[in-house]
Design a protein around this nucleic acid. Structure first.
Length: 424
RNA sequence: GGAGAGGUGGCCGAGUGGUUGAAGGCGGCGGCCUCGAAAGCCGUUGUAUCGCUUGCGGUACCGGGGGUUCGAAUCCCCCCCUCUCCGCCA
């Protein structure tokens, strides 16, 4: 949620931001709504003040054993008016909040301005894509031949967009997860969190998923519970409604969770294989920082995620998303794209965002430094998407005979296994 | 799931309709005392928002949301959470 003050004092900044994001929100209408609400609230407060004054008078009269009937009768009228006003204020309140909640975050000044992914900026590349003496297969073919990915069974059990991992495949997923968690906790100083995978609607709202993205998440029938679309949701809410000690910042958390997404609107995209699933595993990095340090911490967080790919020996590139391609709550986003030989292109494997105070305002997370509490900045990034990392490993480490070499850093997690071979 | 007990300020804990933003204690901060410290004593101590603006004033906040009333921490209704016992389960 953006600061309502921006609306009143700096509407041009907001207007430019919305244009750059190709968002068509009627700011004037919201501004008018805000003005009406404020006037109503002022009127109501005046009435309340009168009520409070009269209340004291009534007390005095009663103490003096005098008749207060007249004063009470007079206040009856005021009370009725106040109730009416109260109802109208409440109405305007919800209207205004609903409007504010659908305004996206203001892009950071360093973000390239452009309508779509075409304007994204390449930041850096690491290693060249590997060369193969044979036509590399994709993970679907490899996985099925090796007997580690079973899409048919998954479809039978749960329908489209699910995968069953078997044997060394399941083991590899677990190895990757543990490897990532170990690097981030032991070397990068993150605290490991294992949060609930079901969260309340209020938590979804705090993280900016609701009301805008209700279609993209799964919810539990008959209850106000949602399956987490990302660990970002429970992690953001970890400190909801708290005033943090500024000395403790930055707070750094890492969490493994499965992620559940309906992938509405992506029909026909990546329908084969496990690239785009209703359920996938992710190790998420998350930071609460002060306003001054969030940019540096954002860069550091992105580099923390890159380390995983470097250790795995996977070629990747980092891009900065343009204003038109960025997510709703982000002020700036780096995407890390890994090379997938089976797709013959780079594909997103991590998205690292600085949400500035956007989520913090919604979730009411502040810190105290001088006197006034101020909103913290929140950062999140995948470190990494585990399923896609598994795809990257088997496609990049495939051999001519269809077997897959296990990257050295994963072998301790695979009981020393050096190669995944077909199960005869 | 059944029965009961609770949720008050940073913490503990009073308070069952009227100067209660809330006694008292702890903690924190400032001061006195001291060579210094402890103890003791005195004072002070929340958040949000609006308006004039070094300060002051208005309003709201006693788990959350409704309601009754001139007036609600206090009465009524709904919800959430915690604790104890029973049941069930991993």
């Amino acid at each position: 949620m953006i600061d309502a003050k921006l609306l009143r004092d700096n509407i041009d900044v907001l207007r430019t931001a919305l244009e750059n994001r190709r968002s068509s929100i009627n700011l004037e209408a919201i501004l008018a709504l805000d003005a009406s609400r404020r006037q109503l609230l002022y009127d109501l407060e005046q009435l309340r003040a009168e009520q409070n004054r009269a209340s004291e008078e009534i007390v005095k009269l009663k103490r003096a054993k005098q008749d207060a009937a007249e004063a009470i009768a007079a206040m009856k009228k005021v009370s009725d008016t106040a109730k009416e006003l109260e109802e109208r204020v409440r109405d305007f309140d919800t209207q205004l909040r609903d409007q504010l909640l659908i305004i996206p975050n203001i892009p950071h000044e360093s973000v390239p301005v452009g309508p779509d992914a075409g304007s994204n900026r390449l930041e850096r590349k690491w290693e060249e894509p590997p060369h193969f003496d044979f036509a590399p297969r994709d993970h679907i073919e490899l996985g099925e031949k090796l007997g580690i990915l079973d899409f048919e069974s998954a479809a039978k059990i749960s329908g489209a967009r699910f995968t069953v991992l078997k044997g060394a495949g399941a083991r590899l997923e677990r190895a990757l997860t543990n490897f990532m968690l170990d690097v981030h906790t032991r070397e990068h100083g993150y605290t490991e969190i294992l949060p609930p995978f079901l969260v309340l609607g209020s938590s979804m709202e705090g993280a900016g998923q609701l009301p805008k993205f209700a279609d993209e998440a799964f919810s539990v029938k008959g209850r106000d519970l949602w399956l987490v679309p990302t660990a970002e949701v429970p992690l953001t809410n970890l400190h909801r409604d708290e005033i943090l000690d500024a000395e403790l910042l930055p707070l750094k958390y890492v969490a493994y969770t499965p992620c559940f997404r309906s992938e509405a609107g992506s029909y026909g995209k990546d329908t084969r294989g496990m690239l785009r699933q209703h359920q996938f595993d992710k190790v998420e990095l998350y930071k609460f920082t002060t306003a001054e340090t969030s940019c540096d911490e954002h860069d550091a967080l992105t580099q923390n995620a890159e380390v995983i790919l470097q250790r795995l020996g996977l070629a990747y590139q980092v891009i900065t998303l343009s204003t038109g391609d960025m997510g709703f709550g982000a002020a700036k986003t780096y995407d890390i794209e890994v090379w997938l030989p089976g797709q013959d292109c780079y594909r997103e494997i991590s998205s690292c965002s600085n949400c500035t105070d956007f989520q913090a305002r919604r979730a009411n997370i502040r810190c105290r430094r001088e006197k006034k509490p101020e909103f913290v900045h929140t950062l999140n990034g995948s470190g990494l998407a585990v399923g896609r990392t598994l795809i990257a490993v088997i496609e990049n480490y495939q051999q001519a005979d269809g077997s897959v070499i296990v990257p050295e850093v994963l072998r301790p997690y695979m009981n020393g296994m050096e190669r995944i071979e077909p199960v005869a």
